[in-house]
Amino acid sequence: DETGKFLVLSLYDYQEKSPREVTMKKGDILTLLNSTNKDWWKVEVNGRQGFVPAAYVKFL
């Protein structure tokens, strides 16, 4: 199980638009929880879990 094993870097600021999403700032290091959807990845940032656009992050 690779859940929570990968870190990704936020390339852009992102403001959550729904309760299922999370806000991140450019340069944030996020824990990747799920990347099965090619468009939206589930991450943990600042103690919160939610989705961010996959195009806004990259693997470290």
Rank of each mutant, 00 (worst) to 15 (best):
W41Q: 00
S18D: 12
S35A: 14
V52N: 00
T23E: 03
F51P: 00
K38M: 09
N34V: 09
F59H: 10
L9I: 15
V57C: 09
N34H: 07
T3M: 13
D13A: 06
G50N: 01
P19C: 10
L32C: 08
N37S: 09
R48H: 07
L9S: 05
V43M: 01
Y14E: 02
E44G: 05
G27I: 01
T23N: 06
M24R: 00
G47C: 06
T31W: 12
K38L: 09
S10T: 08
D13S: 07
R20A: 12
R20H: 14
Y12I: 11
Y14P: 03
D13G: 05
N34Q: 10
F6T: 13
N46P: 03
L32S: 01
L9V: 15
S18G: 12
V43L: 02
L11G: 04
F51N: 03
D39V: 13
V45H: 13
L32K: 01
T3K: 14
V45A: 10
R48P: 02
K58P: 02
G47A: 04
G47F: 04
Q15E: 15
M24V: 10
D28C: 07
R20L: 14
K26H: 06
D39A: 09
G4P: 13
L30M: 15
D13T: 05
Y14M: 02
E21R: 04
T31F: 11
V45N: 10
Y56T: 08
V45K: 10
Q15R: 08
S10G: 09
Q49R: 10
T36I: 09
F51H: 04
K38T: 09
K25E: 06
K26C: 08
G50D: 00
K25V: 09
Y12P: 01
V45G: 06
P53W: 05
E2F: 11
E16N: 06
L9F: 08
Q49D: 06
K25M: 09
V52R: 00
V8L: 15
M24N: 00
Q49K: 10
F6K: 13
T3P: 13
Y12Q: 14
L60T: 07
R20N: 15
F59Q: 10
W40D: 00
W41L: 07
S10C: 15
K58Q: 15
G4M: 13
L30E: 00
V8K: 01
D13K: 02
K38Y: 07
G50I: 03
I29S: 03
T3D: 13
N34D: 15
S35M: 15
N46V: 04
D13L: 03
A55F: 09
G50F: 04
G27K: 02
N37C: 10
L7A: 06
P19N: 10
D1I: 14
N46C: 08
L11S: 04
M24K: 01
L33Q: 02
P19T: 10
A54E: 02
T36N: 12
Y56G: 08
V52L: 05
L11I: 12
T3S: 13
G27Y: 04
R48C: 06
N37R: 09
D13H: 05
G47Y: 04
F51L: 09
N34W: 07
V52H: 01
D13C: 06
Q15P: 08
K26P: 04
V52Y: 01
K5A: 11
M24A: 02
L11R: 04
L9K: 09
G27E: 03
K17M: 12
W41Y: 10
V57T: 03
V45R: 10
G50K: 01
N46G: 11
L30G: 08
N37D: 15
D1C: 15
V52G: 01
V22E: 00
V57E: 00
V45W: 06
Q49M: 10
V22P: 00
T36W: 10
D39R: 11
E44L: 08
Y56V: 07
V45F: 13
L11H: 03
T23C: 05
T3G: 14
V22T: 05
A55W: 08
L9N: 02
K26L: 06
L7Y: 14
S35Y: 11
D39K: 12
R48W: 04
S18V: 04
G47R: 04
V43N: 00
G4L: 13
Y12A: 13
S35F: 11
Q49F: 08
T3V: 13
K42A: 08
F51V: 06
N34I: 07
L33H: 05
Y14G: 02
L7R: 09
K38S: 12
E44D: 09
T31A: 09
F6D: 10
D1Y: 13
A54H: 03
V43G: 00
V43D: 00
E2L: 14
M24W: 01
D28Y: 04
F59R: 10
Q49W: 07
E21H: 06
D28K: 03
D1Q: 14
Y14C: 07
S10V: 15
L33D: 00
K26Y: 05
A54C: 06
G50A: 02
S18L: 08
D39G: 09
M24I: 15
P53C: 06
F6R: 15
E44R: 06
L60G: 04
K26S: 07
M24Y: 02
K5G: 11
M24S: 00
K38R: 11
G4E: 13
T3C: 15
Q49E: 11
R20P: 05
L30V: 08
L11N: 04
F59I: 15
V43Q: 00
P53G: 03
E16H: 08
Y12F: 13
P53K: 04
W40E: 03
K17C: 10
G47E: 05
I29G: 01
W40V: 01
N37F: 07
N37G: 10
F51E: 03
Q15W: 12
W41H: 02
P19E: 12
G27F: 03
M24P: 00
T31K: 13
L60N: 04
L32Y: 02
W40T: 01
T23Q: 04
N34P: 03
M24F: 06
K17F: 05
L32P: 00
G4C: 15
V22D: 00
E2C: 15
E21G: 12
L9C: 11
G50V: 03
N37H: 11
G27L: 02
L60D: 05
I29T: 06
I29R: 05
Y14R: 02
D1L: 14
Y12C: 15
Q49H: 08
G27Q: 02
V52D: 00
K42C: 15
K42F: 15
V8T: 03
L32T: 01
K17A: 12
T36D: 15
K38P: 15
W41R: 00
D39M: 12
M24G: 00
D1N: 14
S10N: 03
K17P: 04
S35T: 12
K5H: 13
P53A: 03
V22F: 09
K26F: 06
V45D: 02
R20I: 12
E2Y: 10
D39Y: 15
S10P: 03
K5E: 10
W40I: 02
L32F: 05
K58I: 15
G4K: 14
K42S: 07
T23K: 03
S35P: 07
E2A: 14
D28L: 05
K17I: 07
K25N: 09
V22K: 01
V22Q: 01
K5D: 09
P19L: 09
Y14H: 04
V8E: 00
D28Q: 13
T36F: 10
P53H: 03
D28M: 13
F51K: 02
L7D: 04
K38H: 11
N34R: 06
T3H: 14
Q15S: 12
S18K: 07
R48L: 07
S18H: 11
L60H: 08
E2M: 14
L7T: 08
K5S: 11
L33V: 11
G50M: 04
K42G: 04
L11Y: 05
R48F: 07
T23Y: 04
T36H: 11
F59C: 15
K42Y: 15
F51S: 02
Y14K: 01
A54L: 02
S18P: 03
Q49G: 06
K42I: 14
W41D: 00
V45C: 08
L11K: 06
K42E: 14
L9H: 05
L7I: 09
A55T: 11
Y14T: 02
W41A: 04
T3W: 13
Q49S: 11
S18I: 04
A54M: 04
E44Y: 05
E2G: 14
I29C: 07
K25H: 11
V8A: 08
L33K: 04
E2Q: 14
G50H: 01
G47I: 02
A54S: 14
L60K: 04
N34S: 12
V52T: 01
V43K: 00
